[in-house]
Every structure is written in C-alpha cells, then in structure tokens.
C-alpha cells in the first residue's frame, strides 16, 4: 500500500521546478494530483504523471487570485473527487533593487503572489478540509525567510510572512484535524533561480554554488519533493505549524563558506 493511496492533492506552480517534482512525487506515492500552473508546461507535468501510470488533471490559471483559487478547489472536488492535500507553491523572486530605491508596487506584487496566494489556499482548501476534519496544507517558504542575503528583500519578507501563516493557520485550525506546515528550501535550480546558476556557469564557478551550506552543494527539486511528500502523508501526523528547512544546513550554521574550513 502506497503512502498516499486514495488521497487527492492540489499542487500549484506545478509546471516546473519544485512544484513539478512534487506533483510527480505525490502521484508516485498514490495520490491523484490536480496540477495547477500559469502556462502550458502544466500539461507536460500531467502527461509525465500519466506516462508513469499515475492519475493527474491539469488546470492553467493564476493561483494568486481569489476567484481562481476558489475555482481550483471546486474543480478538484468535482473532477478529482476530493481534496486532502494542498501544496501552495507559486512564487516570484522580487528584484535586487537597492533597498532605498524599492517601490511599494514591487512589494505589493511579491506579497500578492508569494503570501496572499498561501492565504487563499488556506482559506479555500481549509474550508473543505476542516469540514471533512482531515487535511494537510503545505506552503512553500524559503531559507531566505530566516536569514538575510539569501534572496531579494521583498522576497525574504514575503516568505517570513508565509512562515507566520503556517503557524497562525495551524493554530486557527486547532481541533479540526487539518495540519498546516511550511517547507523552507535552500538554493535549488528552478525557473526562479536559473539566472544564479547560469551566471555561475558563465563565470566558470558552478562548482561554488551552494558552498555556503554544510553539504556544499545546491539542492535538487526532488529532495524538496520528498519533504513535501512527508508533510503530505500521515508520517507527519504529529507535525503541525512547523517550518521544515530543507536547505543543506544553511539556516543551522554560520555562513561558514566565507571562512576557511578543512575540506
């Protein structure tokens, strides 16, 4: 018996990167997956899952807008037949504009996509899950939510808000059987971070990427997906309101890449 047999999962940002890897992973563990993305690659994820013998449906929409999130949950319930897992995973990076020059417009946009999207997932998935008294909501945060200099400032602040939302929503859902947790990836090559990797390759320093982490390498999307699958499953049945760092150790140490250590 697979760990997620019979479960129905929404994955937003499912067309690429961590979302795609997670959708595939949840399907491999037996879940029927409703893959949501903004572009045509959403269907590629669906096709990959089906090619492996899994069950998936796709929906192309912007999961940062309220009506769309309501529609995602409605369609998952009617077309997939239920909803036990919601992985709220869409995000934008913000810009590296110097702090004093940043605009309210950028902040509002980053917050809308990174933070409000999580609120909406909790609101609409939570309404169904609390009624059925079972569910797991997983929010994508970031190591940048805990430390400076791991992402743009607006991005880092928006992800810190996501952490708080995991805690406050878990508390708001006390006694309902619905768990809310956040996963905090470190540096992983995805659409969002591709420029970091491409710049490093262009400069011939790709092997230095991730060197500030104790594991001395960047993460892979499938490693984040494994943690998402854990949080989605009953293996994490006593884990609630938590921030799960999957970052090679970057948040647990000094940024010791700047000083000389053996090896």
């Amino acid at each position: 018996m697979k760990r997620l047999e019979g479960k129905r999962a929404v994955v937003t940002g499912g067309g690429s990167g961590i979302g795609k890897a997670s959708a595939i992973r949840l399907a491999r563990e037996g879940a029927s997956v409703f893959v949501v993305g903004r572009s045509a690659n959403t269907e590629e994820t669906v096709e990959e899952i089906r090619a492996e013998g899994g069950t998936a449906l796709g929906m192309i929409t912007d999961a940062s807008l309220e009506d769309n999130v309501a529609e995602i949950v409605r369609r998952c319930l009617s077309e997939v037949g239920g909803l036990e897992i919601f992985f709220a995973n869409i995000g934008v990076t913000g810009t590296n504009t110097p702090l004093l020059d940043q605009s309210v417009e950028e902040w509002m946009e980053v917050y809308r996509i990174n933070t409000v999207s999580c609120f909406l997932a909790i609101k609409y998935a939570g309404a169904h899950m609390t009624a059925q008294r079972y569910g797991s909501i997983i929010l994508t945060s970031s190591a940048a939510s805990l430390r400076a200099n791991a992402g743009a400032i607006s991005y880092s602040a928006s992800k810190a808000a996501v952490n708080n939302l995991a805690q406050t929503a878990a508390n708001a859902f006390a006694g309902t059987g619905v768990r809310v947790n956040a996963v905090l990836p470190g540096l992983v090559e995805t659409q969002l971070t591709r420029k970091v990797f491409e710049d490093a390759r262009a400069r011939g320093v790709e092997s230095k990427i991730g060197h500030v982490t104790p594991l001395k390498r960047p993460g892979r999307a499938d490693e984040i997906a494994a943690a998402v699958a854990f949080l989605a499953s009953d293996d994490s049945s006593y884990v609630d309101g938590q921030l799960l760092s999957v970052d090679g150790g970057v948040s647990s140490t000094h940024p010791f890449g700047r000083i000389a250590l053996p090896n």
């Binding site: 470190g186 993460g219 494994a226 943690a227 799960l244 999957v246 647990s252």
Partner: peptide
C-alpha cells in the same frame, strides 16, 4: 529521502 536536510 532527507538527503538535503542538515542540522535541522
């Protein structure tokens, strides 16, 4: 499965 968790 936890190959990228360290010091957590």
């Amino acid at each position: 499965e936890a190959s990228y968790l360290q010091g957590a």
